[in-house]
Design a protein around this nucleic acid. Sequence first.
RNA 1: GGCCCCUUGGUCAAGUGGUUAAGACACCGGCCUUUCACGCCGGUAACAGGGGUUCGAAUCCCCUAGGGGUCACCA
Length: 483
Amino acid sequence: MKKVKVRFAPSPTGPLHIGGARSALFNYLFAKRYDGEMVLRIEDTDLERSRPEYEKEIIDSLRWLGISWTEGVDIGGDNGPYRQTERISVYREYVEKLLASGQAYECFCSEEELEKEREELLAKGEMVRYSGKCRYLTPEEREEKLKQGIKPAIRFKVPDNKVYVVNDLVRGKVAFETGNIGDFIIMKSDGIPTYNFAVVVDDALMGITHVIRAEEHLSNTPRQLMLYEALNFKVPEFAHISLILGSDRQKMSKRHGATSLIQYREKGYLPEAMYNFLALLGWSPEGEEEILTPEQINKSFSLDRVSKSPAVFDLDKLNHINQQHIKMLSLDRLKELLRPYLEASPYGEKIASLGPEKYELLVMALRDYLVCLSDIVEHARIILEDIEYEDEALQVLKGEHIKDLLLQFIDEYPPVDGVEEIKQYMKSLVKKTKLKPKDVFMPIRCALSGKTHGPDLPYLISIWGREEVQRRVRKTLEIIDRK
RNA sequence: GGCCCCUUGGUCAAGUGGUUAAGACACCGGCCUUUCACGCCGGUAACAGGGGUUCGAAUCCCCUAGGGGUCACCA
């Protein structure tokens, strides 16, 4: 069997978004699965909107996700260049061929004319397609237009009454009749090819065997099939994967909140969690386990298990997957990953002066609370900020004998403050006071943190240390006295 | 509007003619625990509708409805 070769071909008109990332991932997984190759091509023929900085950002995002390729803009290869604006002469060559064989023609229609035509058709309730009027221009008319300085666009002559069948790997056979398709532009009047043309030339020349892309391209496929035929290129296999929708079931867009991969990266979603989540959006593993490492996914991916129906992006699920992947991280790795978030926060200095042992305790105390890495800042608040009293905690502090308990607590506080020692001491305190555990722990928790909820008390106490604990208790005692 | 795709719980989904119609997220309840979270256990909840085909349809066919995509000198 011929070696599988796929490609991901983003246009650098914005950051890599969720949908694009998933297309890239599915291509990558497919190539990986069959030990094939992958091309990264940049489709920057939209001169208006393309920006080099986006190209860089997209590449960064892909690399972050864990996707790599065997040929592409950044690493070169035998089929370059990989940026479409650098391949204009190649497209020109093929356009000439079509022109010479009469399969394409020059179109001099102005934008206004076309717009008017479109509106008329729409008003009459007819199919919106180009009339083909420039198809039959006489040589004299053509000369005349040229003389007027009108730069023609090149249109492809769509064959009459033909049926093109896309043999889609996820959808099966899909047929299109050419009667519904008007002659389309393959090269704009400025000499830049349009998407439908460039994509065919490039995919063919680069030896792409499988085109895996979003469903929005399905109805473009017959046009591309015509071009493959006209140019005598070998037709690749196609697989159109369903769209990713927002919670309102519309195609995912900026309105739906964070849509670019980089935003998730910044919030502290793990690349392996994103990989897992994106893979599950449209693909399902055979087993029941859904929390999977990239390696596990690479091994089991297949197009047969890709769903035809569109999927709603579910942040709850992403959160869950991220949380699970965070749990799988080693403590050392987690400490490393969390540090930048803390350092960039208002607690930057405090973290720096905390020392490695206490920093580790902080991470241990808080790790189960994290849905994403940036959550650490909010959760660290209780440890790094001075006491902020909640009403509920103040209520607890009103209880009888609270003052005695607190005094006894700081008085007997052990000379060492490891988590285990503190735990033992707390137990002994419970025994001595003959109170219910809860009646010992809760007041102390409230006195120290001002809150009724939070991480395990021994951790908090251990991180703060003797002096800080005493300071906090005294502060609380003052407040109780004042009331 | 034409063409095309899609339709199993709120969401992601398994299922390919005979199942008590999986599982996951979310939600609810319980347990664990010095609190919260984590974890564990359990629960609510689905085959869009209508016709066929068949001994038997979530599964096959047709129609209807709903959603989406596309019809650019955007990709």
